[in-house]
Design a binder for these strands. Sequence first.
DNA 1: CGCGCTGTTGAAACTTGTCAAAGTTTGTGG
DNA 2: CCACAAACTTTGACAAGTTTCAACAGCGCG
Lengths: 258, 258
Amino acid sequence: MYATASLQNARTPVIGDVSVTNSTSTSPCQIRCSSCTLKHVCLPMGLTTEDVERLDNVVYFHRPVKRGQPLYRSGAPFNAIYAIRVGSFKAAVVHDDGREQVTGFQMAGELIGLDGISTEKHTCDAIALEDSEVCVIPFQHLEKLCRESETMQRHVHKIMSSEIVGKHGLMLMLGNMHAEERLATFLLNLSQRLKARGYSPIAFQLRMSRAEIGSYLGMKLETVSRTFSKFQDQGLINTQQKKIEITDLEGLKHIIGR
Amino acid sequence: MYATASLQNARTPVIGDVSVTNSTSTSPCQIRCSSCTLKHVCLPMGLTTEDVERLDNVVYFHRPVKRGQPLYRSGAPFNAIYAIRVGSFKAAVVHDDGREQVTGFQMAGELIGLDGISTEKHTCDAIALEDSEVCVIPFQHLEKLCRESETMQRHVHKIMSSEIVGKHGLMLMLGNMHAEERLATFLLNLSQRLKARGYSPIAFQLRMSRAEIGSYLGMKLETVSRTFSKFQDQGLINTQQKKIEITDLEGLKHIIGR
DNA sequence: CGCGCTGTTGAAACTTGTCAAAGTTTGTGG
DNA sequence: CCACAAACTTTGACAAGTTTCAACAGCGCG
């Protein structure tokens, strides 16, 4: 009852595409969206039971990605978007001259790959920050679902739009904020997303290097490091390399408020 | 034959919404997408004749916006996206503390308003940089079209995705580039878009102030002004206030290439 | 014709970047 | 399991680029 005959038929070629274009193999999915622990923060968030069951028919394959390995690279053909089931990723665009800009960090439950829709080729690299696993969402199938279900369609549109809105926020940060404000914004954002996933919002492990944080925030790694140290001196956080403990959440918020 | 009965019926409430939520009135459209001179650069770009005719049924109202006036403001309810028919706009997000970041400049044929989809409220201000006119595209109607036509659906998805990709480029600029590279990028981007619209790519009138350019590029207006002067000294451009003439296109490109 | 807004230019101050060195952690291979 | 190498982080000193503050010029508008 979960898979209609037409979807079964339509699915076959896409599976082929995926295995051709990606060197890593995919594996059938044990866990359905409808029973996934991440459904409150992932694609299914806010959807009706019926729509989630439709998703179950489309999200059928998982793909493991080892730390440091790409889920996809810039220029790779676009077939699917991905929901992160385990682990985390960075997305980065690389300029001709080699300059890299990290455009986002994604964690479990978040989507990655929307950049590829426009040209049907991915326009950035998606690299796993730790051993991870993604759910493969063949985009053609998702589009079919959106034509069949108005609520699903609106949902997908909202996800894309919030991606745009999120980038606006980043632009505001990159264009207007000082190093301290940027790092505080970054930490608070991370904290909030971890909280939404049931993790501690005040003690966590960074998955990315200082250089990657710096690239994302538009500053050099030394400045990131110095700013961490400054926060530590001010009693706002405790850091030990990648281990972060926020000791004064309000203080951090106050930095952004100037 | 252009308007089906069902669309006629569906349209009425949306018209109501538009006139309620916007203080400015809209007027029926004389010009159809299918006969619009901007169709090669606007929403209809690349669509089949059939799809464009479907658009004709949906894009029915125009709205004039005087220079300096908002098309919408942050927080306003989202009903429609807009295609710029005449003139140009800036989109800007405003931080709590009053800091403003211009997130984009839109010119004729470009879409504005996608930011509102995610929360059904607009998240930025859209302000006319000159006396302008937009085509109102009720989003619910566009979504209906996308459910009916696969090519239209993919088209709209591509537009949203390229908005995301475009922001990535901006982030790269804000995060990695020096003042000269930023301004050169800005000028070349403008030049290219004007060219695509049949205007001179090397002589044009800026519609925005130095402060607005600065906000967009993440630098202060004085730095913008100084950088313009530097380009002028280097023989790359001629500026007289808002009038710009690019005298060495390759030279400008070379600045970005470092 | 003057007033205000916008743009230009200069000098000093500040923030961040650059370069360099040393310390720390992580991972690998013996 | 330890040792060593590689990668990452921290910190300092100095340089460079941008902002800030200030003054003035030019253009458009009433």
